[in-house]
């Protein structure tokens, strides 16, 4: 397990992807975290959201679900989704070590969020793993 280093340029590029692909369709908050629960970059409306706690819980939640998958003989659950009264939250695994968290209201169709998340997953992974 190494040390992840992100430069200002890298953050800008990641933010641009989140902005143009996810915030553009109305997602309220998109957070990219690593599996240790660190926030790498957040885009959107963070007002009132404790992103540090959210990231730690999301990483733990994902880890726990992966273990449950193993017990059931599943490969992995690569997507998690929770529906609330107003806000919905969607977690997607990005490669082996990262998780993309998106928060959005009922006005945005889940299908659209899924589609966009799938599209950006690859791009984000490339940015996260390439050397600059």
């Amino acid at each position: 397990m190494g040390t992840m280093v992100v430069t200002a340029e890298k953050v800008k590029e990641l933010q641009r992807v989140l902005d143009s692909q996810l915030l553009a369709i109305g997602v309220s908050l998109a957070i990219l975290i690593d599996e240790a629960g660190n926030v790498i970059v957040a885009a959107g409306n963070e007002n009132g959201v404790d992103t540090t706690s959210l990231a730690a819980l999301a990483a733990a939640n994902f880890g726990a679900t992966a273990q449950i998958a193993k017990l059931l003989g599943e490969e992995d659950f690569s997507i998690l989704y929770h529906k609330g009264k107003r806000d919905n939250i969607h977690f997607t695994k990005i490669g082996m070590d990262f998780i993309l968290v998106t928060i959005f209201t009922d006005e945005i169709p889940l299908g659209l969020v899924r589609l966009r998340v799938n599209q950006v997953a690859h791009e984000l992974l490339n940015l996260l793993t390439e050397n600059d």
């Binding site: 040390t3 992840m4 430069t7 200002a8 890298k10 800008k12 240790a36």
Partner: peptide, 12 residues
């Protein structure tokens, strides 16, 4: 995995 964020100038 430690995170070194040169943008916010933080080490986690």
């Amino acid at each position: 995995m430690a995170l070194i964020d040169l943008n916010r100038r933080e080490i986690h």
